[in-house]
Nucleic acid binder design. Structure first.
Lengths: 353, 353
DNA sequence: ACAGTTTAGGCAAACGTTTGCCATGTTCAA
DNA sequence: TTGAACATGGCAAACGTTTGCCTAAACTGT
């Protein structure tokens, strides 16, 4: 036995492929066919004698056999692979979603491939194709954009879960929060702080997510303070940091600083904070921003930012549940996870709602 | 032909696998063998007549044929897959490394699988095995920990690039910065700021990276100010935020606040900042911290933190270069990328060195 | 004793590639 | 005219699985 292995390594040119023990290795050693080993390895114990089963199981354990997922994929759709498409990994919110999803998938035996689409439709398409040809069993698309291949995937009824931003073509499982209500909660918070001249900044092109947040905010303000003027400014798309900074500068150049601002993402609030710092405006005393996301770092270095916490840490579980339901054929709808306003003052102490 | 296809689809149970066009589809349609199509698709144009080549190329374009990477993997080690193993994706530094590496790999036609090892040896091992059995062509291990499977992989001479933290078993390609010099630069900065009672905080278990930074810092201080006492405190491992916070509290409880502190990672500096906020100590006026990493968010929300910028955005290119060299067989050594101190004062304006 | 059933397990196809080797047919030079 | 060289392209194995179907032999019941 030992000899055989050595000799094989010696006169074969390339390394024996993966170097892992395969069904064939076990089969040879046990003196049975590959089929038998495969069946036993998959728990079909009724098809072989007790003696054979014992022998094969012993060898499987001894040699540390593990079914090769590539062979399985090729055979038929059992790749145990799920692809997550996300715009920029740099965004801490994306990282949090990715981390929790990765853990949830691993817990059910799946491996996640994380693809950075840079928010570009062409890259989103490229990755959809690439992952399909790797037999990905499902797709998780965070902040999807409309793209031909996405539409094609939907037509083919491939399992796709949308996160954060709804399916641009409508329908399909969605994991997120109630964005309108989050906006409304932000409005309530600012009113409770005594704000009299509120404003909102946002990116020029509105995704469904941002639009809902902004509308929820404005509608609630109008409902509770009819006639109140809500100033609204946008900044260039792309990076939310730059966008928040630019929008804040436009906003304040044209009418001075508001005493309260909805920033529909924490990154935009950071942008506003920088603009304030440059102009010597004290945050949150002179202008009270409220963010949405509640980046984990806020507790550490942004004690001036009240923010609506989105439970990204729990997205993973919801996502894999939806994905499994979807693959099982049951119809899956929206999952709206609870959000919560986290109040902070500059002093540093956090007051949970 | 048509008939056959239909009949096949009719009495076969599962959907025809991936739904993508395969070599066989093209071959049937072109009336040639699979081998011929394969060769043409791979650019071996000398093995068929000009007419055949033209016909096949046309069909390949028309049907949008793309070689299936799973078939290729199975055939022999051409998976175009690289695995990155990283501890916690939450750390913004990891996210930056992952993002740049992903882009660099994509540019050369590779796909990256990102695995979160949570800094646990058992998960690191699990992922090494899983990725090997998916025929990953290389491994990028960020902040590696010692583990049996890693040692085994090294013995098998699998292509592994170490990032940020050196190979715990010694040797091998490494991408990072000159950590001793970074520590020394931090010392120079604090001295330039007129610091007289410096300190350093760090995690209780020292990785090679952190140890080098701390040693470089202390050695430089002793060299320039012989006899100067450098207070040194550690905090519990795990999360650098908590660690920095705990270490700062221990440090200040036992001897008051120092006027300058080396925090060997930005996250530890954030921990210290929180402790300072709770105790009403003004940063950086009363205590001047210097971090290492220079998180991108510093410019936005931590204008009080001078930090040594590590060019994570450029790690990707260096990593894939090393990986390719490694696979090509050339001996690859360490790559130390240039770092740079970024000076900041609370006011917000950044002064580049 | 004989048909029928169960037990134990092997065969081979299929998934999509790649590639060494073989088989024709044509062209060319001596 | 007869090899040799070249052009063109197919065959089949291999990678690692899974699974429908087949084949024996060994039982079971009457």
């Amino acid at each position: 036995m030992q000899m055989e292995g050595i000799v094989n390594n010696w006169h074969r040119e390339p390394a024996p492929s993966s170097g892992q023990t395969s069904l064939a290795d076990i089969a040879v050693e046990a003196g049975v066919s590959v089929s038998t080993v495969s069946r036993i390895a998959n728990g079909d114990l009724g098809r072989a004698s007790a003696a054979t089963v014992a022998k094969v199981q012993r060898l499987i354990a001894e040699r540390g056999y593990r079914p090769n997922p590539v062979g399985r994929s090729l055979r038929g759709g059992d790749s145990r692979l799920v692809a997550m498409l996300a715009p920029n990994l740099d965004n801490p919110a994306m990282a949090a979603i990715a981390a929790s999803t990765e853990a949830a998938l691993r817990a059910v035996g799946y491996v996640m491939i994380l693809c950075d689409t840079h928010d570009r439709p062409d890259l989103q398409d490229e990755y959809l194709r690439a992952m399909r040809s790797r037999f990905a069993e499902g797709f998780i698309v965070v902040s999807a954009v409309a793209s031909p291949e996405l539409e094609a995937s939907l037509d083919r009824r491939e399992p796709i879960v949308f996160v954060n931003r709804r399916n641009p073509y409508g329908g399909g499982p969605f994991i997120g929060i109630d964005n309108r209500r989050a906006g409304a909660d932000a409005a309530d918070h600012l009113l409770a702080c005594g704000v009299r001249a509120p404003a909102v900044i946002h990116p020029a092109e509105l995704s469904s997510t941002i639009r809902e947040r902004v509308e929820g905010f404005i509608d609630r303000l109008e409902e509770r303070r009819p006639g109140l003027c809500v100033r609204r400014y946008d900044g260039p798309g792309g990076n939310h940091l730059d966008c928040g900074y630019a929008a804040a500068k436009r906003l304040t150049a044209e009418g001075g600083w508001p005493d309260g601002v909805l920033c529909p993402s924490d990154l935009m609030a950071y942008g506003l904070f920088r603009a304030a710092g440059e102009q010597g405006v004290r945050i949150p005393d002179e202008c009270c921003p409220v963010g949405i996301d509640d980046n984990d770092l806020n507790d550490w270095i942004a004690p001036w930012l009240s923010s609506i916490k989105i439970p990204y840490r729990h997205f993973g579980d919801a996502i894999v549940t939806s994905l499994r339901d979807l693959r099982a054929g049951s119809s899956v709808g929206e999952v709206l996870l609870p959000h919560k306003l986290i109040r902070r003052r500059s002093g540093g102490e956090t007051i949970e709602n």
